[in-house]
Design a protein around this nucleic acid. Structure first.
Lengths: 215, 215
DNA sequence: TGTATTTTATTCGTTTCAGTACAATATCAC
DNA sequence: GTGATATTGTACTGAAACGAATAAAATACA
């Protein structure tokens, strides 16, 4: 599936990326089950048979929309992170960007990959979001490691834990966005997240707690 | 709506709390839209007309199930928090209990109120979860304030921020649970959350960041 | 010009959904 | 027992869902 070569049939009357954006927007707002193919057909501006011809059934379309979403909006925080000079400024930009897109719509939709996609129990979707989250965390960890290499963070800075905190903060922010939390509060959370990530301790690791004793 | 008085018609053949538990379990697993009334009827062991007679339409049933869920499973972390002696042990128990119920089912359902309910765009549900989250956070803040009063935390400890971090950590844990993150990792997150809540700084408050400059 | 090829548009069929009417059933009050 | 009352169970309705079959339209190539 390299390229839909310019072959000879009737030409498409739609832009694949644009219609996937619209599909993602609809899934983002309503979730998978509550979004009907008629809704999608109307929003994408193409009939249901064209959707089937182009993307397959509803689940396949959902996956394509998730990929498109990941490669566009979900990647903007990472781009913001690597665009800044210092790691602190990078993290601030990262979380600010996160707040920006989770509250972009007037009705604070949160994150499609962080909030709504995991609710579906479609196996392909589950695997997609799971591996996506791991990759996301790995990329943050790589940036933190680079900062350690540049001397911006101490040599014993635990990059895995820092990335973990960053992802967790992002998940909390997007969940809160979906709750309708005002953007100002989320920006405070974002600031707090930055200092939390930068202030992570090297490794207390189950030592100074009095007694774990799992229930 | 004090009590369904023991009046004279045909007696109910179900336990209202028990059937609400089953309904909540189903909504928890599948979300609102993906759960049909036939599924609910089968799981609750009562015909659809009985459901309508007892709880009203699907949305009303959903709200009742959410209330029941809040008053049972979602309150266990708070009870664990107040059952412990020290605030640290209380927070550890709190987060451990959180991990326990978000991963209780074999397929890690997360939190019904934290993950799946906010996806629906039903106005009543939105208000319910929003006010519920605020109340939840307020109760944690009250416990932290009590710990300050007992001298367990410094007098200038910012209870609002601490409660905020606690709720955010909970949201992240339940989101991760839904992703399928192993319980061991979540217990590490829980431990990290405790020290994050206890180690919150009194109030740096937008001062030592180099320049906020919102995008 | 004509044929092959690809995408659109119309229509249909089957299933599933939420909600309701109505009769049967089981208790309480008397 | 008899009647009032509340719940249960069967059956039904109208709408909406997903998916497919078929025909029309628009391009490229020979």
């Amino acid at each position: 599936m390299i390229e839909k070569s310019r072959s000879r049939g009737r030409p498409r009357s739609y832009d694949p990326d644009a219609v996937l954006d619209r599909a993602a927007q609809l899934f983002w707002a309503n979730g998978f089950s509550a979004t009907s193919l008629d809704d999608l057909s109307a929003a994408m501006g193409m009939g249901r048979p064209s959707i089937y011809n182009a993307f397959g059934d509803k689940e396949a379309l959902f996956l394509r929309a998730l990929q498109r979403y990941r490669d566009t909006v979900a990647l903007t925080p990472l781009r913001a992170l690597e665009a800044e000079d210092s790691i602190r400024q990078g993290l601030e930009a990262f979380f600010r960007q996160f707040v920006a897109y989770t509250t972009a719509d007037r009705s604070h939709l949160g994150c499609l990959l962080g909030n709504v996609a995991p609710i579906t129990d479609l196996p392909d979707v589950q695997r997609f979001v799971k591996t996506g989250l791991a990759a996301f965390e790995a990329q943050i960890a790589a940036h933190l490691s680079a900062a350690v290499g540049r001397g911006e963070l101490p040599p014993d800075y635990p990059t895995q834990l820092g990335a973990r905190r960053a992802v967790n903060a992002g998940l909390a922010i997007s969940a809160r966005a979906r709750y309708g939390t005002p953007r100002e509060e989320l920006l405070d959370d974002a600031e707090d997240a930055t200092s939390s990530v930068l202030g992570v301790q090297p490794l207390p690791r189950r030592s100074r707690v009095r007694r774990t004793g799992r229930t």
